[in-house]
């Protein structure tokens, strides 16, 4: 669905953000894009949507070159940026002006999502709280039924019940034809939601693997003491949270935050497992 080959990108000639990175994204998956501040998460998403231009390399987004921003490609992409603006109109007027651009826009689904998110439809968008606005654009994005839904920090500004609602809605929105990429700092918000992880670090992709592959190769445990078998450990109140090779095919739940810290600290130690 999306193929990126040898992408080289930066905001200045001498400040590369990505050096020859390559990866592929497939339909029917929710990808979690993780990385430190400034690692280039938003820039990578912008590259995929054609909002910035690659210095070298090729990007193929369902057969289109995103840099050309052709309408046939744009109507298949919905991008929810971290910073957004909604005009001083009511939801109906907003949908009336924007939805016709998306051929598959599902009005009933949009109405259901708005009801589920408990959005006051009679209120003007500009007068809504940040969280409410965010829910409106999330609902709009999902109702477009676009092939690629890109979300940059979608859970920022959502309260705790809304985050749970968001996870539930996202899980039900995934279809075999759709690919969802979620970039976030708040890795806990992606628990039980994503099925693949992409981690960016030092101008490169530090890890790209499915959740199943990660839990097949690694195990996440709470241990009392650190030994040589442990690749990475973080102290806790009653011992350590540890990541270690899954030699005995044990079942464990992926701890995204622990994995994130582990990969950034001990990148070279993890390489043999995911190459």
């Amino acid at each position: 669905m999306i193929k990126v080959n040898n992408l080289h990108f930066g905001y200045g000639k001498n400040q590369p953000l990505f050096k020859n990175i390559s990866f592929q994204l497939d339909a029917g998956h929710i990808y979690g894009l993780l990385g430190k501040n400034g690692a280039g998460k938003s820039s990578l998403l912008k590259n995929l949507a054609g909002l910035v231009y690659a210095q070298q390399g090729t990007l193929d987004v369902f057969g289109f070159d995103p840099a050309k921003r052709q309408p046939a490609m744009l109507e298949q992409i919905c991008f929810i940026p971290e910073e957004f603006y909604l005009p001083a109109v009511k939801i109906d007027a907003y949908v009336k002006a924007n939805a016709p651009f998306y051929k598959k826009f599902n009005h009933d689904y949009f109405t259901n999502l708005i009801q589920e998110f408990d959005i006051p439809v009679s209120q003007k968008l500009i007068n809504m709280s940040y969280g409410q606005k965010k829910k409106v654009i999330i609902a709009f994005a999902l109702a477009t039924q676009a092939k690629l839904i890109i979300m940059d920090e979608p859970t920022n500004g959502l309260d705790i019940p809304s985050k749970a609602q968001f996870r539930k809605i996202m899980a039900s929105a995934l279809t075999d034809e759709c690919c969802i990429i979620i970039s976030t700092h708040q890795v806990r918000d992606l628990d039980n939601l994503i099925d693949s992880v992409i981690m960016l670090d030092e101008n490169d992709i530090a890890l790209q693997a499915s959740v199943d592959e990660i839990t097949e190769k690694l195990t996440f445990k709470k241990v009392k003491a650190v030994d040589d078998s442990i690749i990475y450990a973080e102290p806790s109140l009653s011992g350590y949270y540890a990541v270690m090779p899954n030699y005995h095919q044990e079942e464990s739940k992926l701890d995204l935050e622990l994995l994130f810290n582990a990969i950034l600290t001990e990148k070279t130690k993890f390489k043999p497992y995911f190459n």
Partner: peptide, 18 residues
Amino acid sequence: GQKSRVMHELMIPASTFE
């Protein structure tokens, strides 16, 4: 020229020419 609006404007499914 506004960070919060530029993405939405550029992502509207219409050609640059339109």
